[in-house]
């Protein structure tokens, strides 16, 4: 069953057709990769999915409910979390506080007024936050000011912030960009493990083919705002349309 159904999405920025008639469906419990050259519209597509952008036309159904027109926090509460291409974390806060906040969001919903309680006494929240930091092996950096983390660590932190919510659909926009090889491999292992253990559906945008082929069960190739092919990893490798999309300019 498809957990995410994207139909006929169009989005123009002035004269630029960033997304042109995009159709995509992501199966529940699968890892679906979206690849394509720079400027293909991959991030724009995710922006539509999380409510950052409203498309000119089309529909997005998540688990039978329409996503379009909902506020970002409503979409997140439905179960969609996103790791951004440039890490979006709470830079002024510590690593530990960064992961506590999504824990509160999951437990208490989009708004809860608790101005008297002490965060240090929220046992369940503290435990969850600690466990997820352990999973991404950042427990030793828990007291660090998150703005001072390396780019790779910021990414891992952001991933932890999304994972701790146990979303039903996790959107990852180049999760390993800026990471060293070893960290990339750790991230692959982490995502694999999370996927197997917790049944989280993932849609992942990546330029690193090693990551794509290690994780993805299906791959959609996007070029100039339009999906070209959707295939399994085995069939995508030598696909002529894919080579054209990536090497197009060279052949013309």
């Amino acid at each position: 069953m498809a957990i995410l159904q994207v139909k006929g999405i169009n989005k123009r920025f002035g004269g630029l057709q960033a997304l042109g008639d995009v159709n995509l469906s992501v199966e529940e419990n699968s890892v679906h990769a979206i690849i394509g050259p720079n400027g293909a519209g991959k991030s724009t597509l995710l922006n539509v999915l999380v409510g950052k952008l409203i498309p000119d036309s089309g529909s997005v159904m998540f688990d039978g409910q329409s996503v379009l027109g909902r506020k970002p926090h409503e979409i997140n509460q439905l179960g969609i979390s996103r790791v951004f291409q440039t890490p979006e974390i709470f830079g002024d806060l510590t690593v530990f506080e960064n992961v506590m906040i999504p824990c509160f969001a999951k437990r208490d919903g989009a708004f809860k007024m608790n101005g008297i309680g002490d965060v240090k006494k929220e046992k369940d929240i503290l435990e969850q936050a600690e466990a997820i930091l352990d999973d991404v092996s950042m427990l030793d950096k828990r007291h660090m000011h998150s703005a001072s983390l390396s780019r790779g660590d910021k990414r891992r932190l952001e991933m932890a912030m999304c994972l701790v919510q146990e979303p039903r659909l996790l959107l990852l926009d180049e999760p390993t960009a800026g990471m060293a090889r070893a960290d990339t491999n750790n991230t692959i292992d982490l995502l694999k493990e999370i996927h197997e253990k917790r049944d989280i559906t993932m849609a992942i945008i990546e330029h690193d083919m090693h990551v794509v082929f290690s994780l993805a069960e299906r791959i959609t190739v996007l070029a100039q705002g339009t999906p070209l092919v959707e295939e399994t990893p085995e069939n995508i490798k030598g696909h002529p349309k894919v080579r054209e999309a990536y090497l197009g300019e060279a052949q013309v």
Partner: peptide, 15 residues
Amino acid sequence: RAIKANNHRMGYTGL
């Protein structure tokens, strides 16, 4: 404090 640090992240974190 989270709002001060990153207002957008609040929304994408479900708040």
